[in-house]
Simulated assay, not measured.
Amino acid sequence: MKTWETFCYDKNGSLIETENEHVKVKLERDQSGQVIKEWHNDYFIASSYDEIGNRSQ
């Protein structure tokens, strides 16, 4: 069985997308680089983050 994964980064070097044979994850970041939205495949993951970027869900 072959496996694969890809990664995409923004111009600042922050991860914005990754994908493998099972899932595609997209991250939306604010101007300071903190993750503000996250998708798994086409589903938005409702998460919240504190002021220093820790996920508080």
Rank of each mutant, 00 (worst) to 15 (best):
E38W: 05
R55I: 06
I52T: 12
S47W: 01
K11F: 03
D10G: 01
D30A: 06
C8Y: 09
E5V: 06
E5D: 14
I52M: 06
I36L: 05
Q31A: 10
N54T: 01
Q57V: 10
D10H: 01
E28N: 07
S56E: 15
D50K: 01
E21D: 14
V35C: 09
E28L: 11
R29N: 04
D50H: 07
I36R: 11
E5Y: 13
M1S: 14
G53F: 09
Y9L: 10
E19Y: 02
N41W: 03
N12T: 03
W4A: 06
G53D: 07
D50V: 04
C8V: 14
I36M: 07
N54A: 00
E21H: 12
L27M: 08
T18G: 05
Y49I: 03
E17T: 02
Q57T: 12
T6V: 09
N20E: 05
K2R: 14
W4T: 01
E19A: 13
E51Y: 06
K37D: 08
Y43N: 12
I45M: 11
I45K: 11
V23W: 07
A46S: 12
E17P: 00
E5P: 00
N54C: 00
G53Q: 08
G13V: 02
D10R: 03
H40T: 09
F44A: 11
L27H: 05
S56F: 10
S32W: 02
V35R: 10
T6Y: 03
S47A: 12
G13L: 03
H40Q: 14
N54Q: 07
S32I: 00
Y43W: 07
K26H: 05
Y43A: 09
K11L: 05
D42N: 15
S47T: 07
M1F: 09
I45F: 00
